[in-house]
Nucleic acid binder design. Structure first.
Lengths: 359, 359
DNA sequence: TTGTATGCGTTATCAG
DNA sequence: CTGATAACGCATACAA
């Protein structure tokens, strides 16, 4: 008995960091309550009197107690962690989604961890496994092209998955995205009907399963239905970054005249195409009318301001977050499939607003 | 004995998700080894024979075993998690840093969790606490303006902290950033010496402790030393986003002529100013020569391409990651302070490269 | 190279 | 509201 007491005195008195970290039991003793009570306080249970709660909190503060969430998660098999696995944080589109999701879910007591896969399958598998191992409560996933659908399905059995932005052939997995086909169609319609373009191109990644593929499909079907010409030269696949887009487009322009109308799979890609046009000497907007996708923050202020198919990041983020929450709470009887409307933001780059020159 | 056996048979046969999840013991039995061996396999210990390792892995696979990292972390008091707490993921600058850091640290076996504070003190405290509670191994932190230095210091006692981008008055906390003062000075020098600007302005957030403050100081000192005029009208504080910058600058231009040279605290802010100039009728670059900060990916392709003080995100990210790793491994005898060199990327917006017009 | 025993800090249960 | 007691699944000596 005396030896126990001595041990407790020992680490309280001298060393900066006591060898044995303070735990609930220590707090309980200091606050003169039971361990159970401390636990109730830490989990914000309503079962504890305000007066007691404050006493406990004060003791914890004074002792420098740090709640051990690993122990708790271990015990409960829950973590209050939700993963947000995206393809590329360097794209402001996903940055905005991350900000929205994080804000929403942290208000609900969850901790959102953002992971970047750079569209690398290994990274994605690594992230998913890690989340599983940490008993994450759910995950919002922008699946890499080439994802193993069976694996995603399997993960979804273990923890609720909500696919974001990119649909997969897995009916039992929830999906939140936008009406990409319609967006592509609307862009094509605008170029054809308002600007009377005949020769059209689609630029950017159209990998199978990607949003780009569906955008392209809507675009292509509309062009064909209107009797326009779809020029396949401009199908710059695997292009995501502005700099890639610029280089690829400049190269293409060396041998071909630009199409009358161009739809790009993202604003980032459109930026590169626009600048390539200018640097190749195509200074008139009517030389090549350009429409982007995403309508990110900078697009309205680009020169020329970019006409873009807008999908609301806030709406996307919030409804994905709500979906995963519902799934976690077991309120989902069947998978949710949500396609948000997209809307054409008409600006200068297609020739609608004032400007006549690109540069 | 027979009842135990029955229980084990029971959940293996029917239900989709067995009530009792499979653990190491089950794997051990299936692979006909001991629990300890399975543990060694899961932690990649070299102590186990290849042949045994494969046998165990195969059994784990077949049983659908998911390693319980919470239990492990609980046991070891380590998590192999490193936090990356940034102010705003919507800024591509931080997106690029996140990508770099994540790539580097995941190669070292760590899991990087990115958290967005939106420069909100509460969010920051929440994130830090959460990381502490989860026994994160370390954290890379872009501290909010107004951060409680004592608290950061305290956190640093509990888990290694590396300040990123924004310095704090806490000598015992490591810091990785760039030479902001010099960058501001270089931008000013360029405008004054090369372009003979006399009336100069600095636009963007210069909150105390921020990088902007130091950039501004370097800028101001240089302008004063050269006998130039620093026009305080342009000090748009609290401005971070492109759209904010645009609106603020347009308003200012209603009542004042632009300065001959303008340095902006980020490229994002410069974009807004540039477009505001154009929309207010200042079409010549010589009306107002603009220099940004960060040199993010889009800047080279903006119209006009943006002259910018470049700080390498890759260098910043990697050395911050290396620093926190060293601290975790106990290889740091004293805090690291690293200021990366910044470099002026000269392009059109200051009037150096070809273009003569802004739009 | 493998097996055995012990404890990590918390939550859940249940009777007071 | 409190107090006692049993898991939770794993890592790590230590022994073999």
């Amino acid at each position: 008995m005396s030896s126990e007491a001595q041990q407790h005195e020992a680490h309280d008195s001298l060393g900066r960091r006591p060898a044995r970290p303070v735990r609930m039991l220590d707090v309980a003793r200091a606050a003169d309550v039971s361990r159970a009570t401390v636990s109730l306080v830490m989990t914000n249970s309503p079962l504890v009197a305000d007066h007691t709660r404050e006493k406990v909190l004060k003791a914890a503060q004074e002792l420098g107690y740090v709640y051990n969430r690993n122990a708790a998660s271990f015990r409960t098999q829950r973590s209050y962690i939700i993963g947000l696995v995206v393809s590329d944080l360097r794209n402001p589109f996903f940055g905005e989604i991350a900000a929205t999701v994080q804000q929403f879910l942290s208000e609900q007591g969850y901790f959102v961890v953002v992971v970047n896969t750079l569209d690398n399958l290994e990274q994605q598998e690594h992230a998913l496994t890690r989340l599983l191992e940490s008993r994450a409560d759910g995950v919002l996933l922008v699946p890499c092209p080439g994802s193993d659908v069976a694996r995603i399905r399997e993960v979804n059995e273990l923890m609720p998955v909500v696919l974001l932005t990119r649909e997969l052939d897995a009916p039992e997995v929830s999906y939140v995205g936008s009406m990409d086909y319609d967006g592509g169609a609307a862009a094509a319609r605008h170029l054809i009907e308002v600007h009377e373009c005949r020769r059209l191109g689609f630029f950017g990644n159209t990998a199978p399963g990607s949003a780009g593929e569906k955008r392209f499909n809507g675009f292509r079907d509309t062009v064909e239905a209107a009797g326009g010409t779809l020029e396949p030269i401009w199908q710059g696949n695997h292009i995501e970054l502005t700099s890639q887009s610029y280089r690829a487009f400049r190269t293409l322009l060396e041998t071909s005249a630009p199409p009358e109308g161009l739809v790009c799979n993202s604003d980032n890609v459109a930026y590169g195409a626009l600048r390539a046009l200018r640097d190749s000497g195509f200074m008139q907007i009517s030389d090549c009318r350009v429409i982007g996708f995403d309508d990110v923050e900078q697009s309205a202020l680009w020169s020329p301001s970019l006409t873009s198919v807008s999908v609301s990041r806030a709406d996307l983020g919030v409804s994905a977050a709500q979906t995963v929450l519902a799934a976690i709470r077991g309120e989902l009887k069947q998978p949710v499939v949500l396609r948000h409307q997209s809307q054409l933001q008409v600006r200068e780059s297609c020739g609608c607003a004032m400007a006549g020159e690109i540069a």
